[in-house]
Simulated scan of single mutants.
Amino acid sequence: MNARYLTFDTPLTFMSWGERIIVGFIPHEQGVTVEVSCATKGMPNLMQNGRNRKIIKQFIDALSSIVQVNGVEVIAS
């Protein structure tokens, strides 16, 4: 597969546990699928899940406005 990945890290601060955001661009016949994941770099925290989902949504919304295509969030089960 000819996928490309970008990784972003946020620092550990008073307001953040320090997140690692991974964005994958996976080409296929119909276009490109963008996969976004966000996880805490340090100790896992159940309270962090809401913040991770918010970061993913912000990224999808920003990318959607750039490429002028509506993003669809799919949650892994």
Rank of each mutant, 00 (worst) to 15 (best):
F25C: 04
G24R: 10
S64N: 01
V67M: 04
N70Q: 15
K41E: 04
L6T: 08
S16M: 06
Q30P: 01
L6F: 15
S37C: 04
M47T: 13
I60Q: 01
G24S: 09
S65C: 06
G18L: 09
I21W: 02
V32W: 04
M47N: 14
F25I: 04
G42A: 03
N2D: 10
P11H: 15
E73M: 12
F14M: 13
D9R: 13
V23T: 02
I75N: 10
I21H: 02
S65D: 13
W17K: 12
Q68E: 13
Q68A: 10
K41T: 07
F14W: 14
K57H: 05
V34R: 00
M1Q: 08
A76K: 11
R51W: 05
S77Y: 08
E73Q: 15
V36M: 03
P27S: 05
N49R: 15
M43N: 09
M1F: 09
T10P: 00
Y5P: 01
K41A: 04
N45Q: 07
T13D: 10
I55M: 05
D61M: 00
A76H: 11
A39N: 06
P11N: 11
A76D: 08
Y5H: 10
F59H: 05
D61N: 00
S65W: 05
A76V: 10
K57S: 05
T7A: 06
C38M: 03
K57V: 00
K41G: 04
N70K: 15
S65T: 09
E19M: 09
I26Y: 03
V32E: 05
A3S: 13
T13M: 10
M1G: 13
E73N: 14
A62W: 05
T10M: 02
P11E: 14
I55T: 05
I26V: 06
T10H: 03
R51T: 08
S65K: 14
T10W: 02
V74I: 15
V72T: 14
L46N: 13
I56T: 01
V67I: 11
S64P: 01
S37Q: 07
M47Y: 15
N49E: 11
N70I: 06
V32M: 06
L46C: 11
Q30M: 07
A3C: 11
M1E: 10
Q68K: 13
R20Q: 08
M15S: 14
